[in-house]
Design a binder for these strands. Structure first.
Length: 110
DNA sequence: CTATTGACCTTCT
DNA sequence: GAGAAGGCCAATA
């Protein structure tokens, strides 16, 4: 499928997102930080966008540092992201996810 | 090939 | 404490 050469960065992101347990959410910064780069959070979003609704990557479980569903506009519908999270048992505070209850930290990859 | 933007975060002023 | 700028990787124009 994807030539793991120029997109190896994406693979790492997908690997972590894929490991996110149901009913939990993680943040771009934690993913980027787990990969060794805490500043490349932007690129993390790109990786998700590349597989948003096209792969087994639950991109809806990835939110920003504030718990806002920033990428909902990139989904099929602007409410799809929230619907999916709610369907998994994730609590919402207004338009934001309760990171205090569903914040999942990814394992540190070497 | 260069410049700009993009689902962001960190750090300095 | 708040605001502004920089930085990371990749894609598009």
């Amino acid at each position: 499928m994807v030539r793991a050469q120029k997109c190896d960065f994406f693979e790492e992101v997908w690997a972590l997102v894929r490991q996110i347990p149901r009913g939990k959410v993680t943040t771009y910064g934690h993913i980027a930080g787990a990969l060794g780069i805490r500043s490349a959070a932007r690129t993390v979003g790109w990786a998700l966008n590349a597989v948003a609704g096209c792969s087994d990557i639950p991109a809806h479980r990835v939110v920003n540092r504030n718990g806002e569903l920033t990428g909902r506009m990139h989904f099929a519908t602007p409410t799809l992201m929230r619907e999916l999270l709610e369907a998994e048992g994730v609590s919402f505070d207004g338009d934001r996810v309760r990171l205090e209850r569903h914040l999942w930290v990814p394992p540190l990859t070497n």
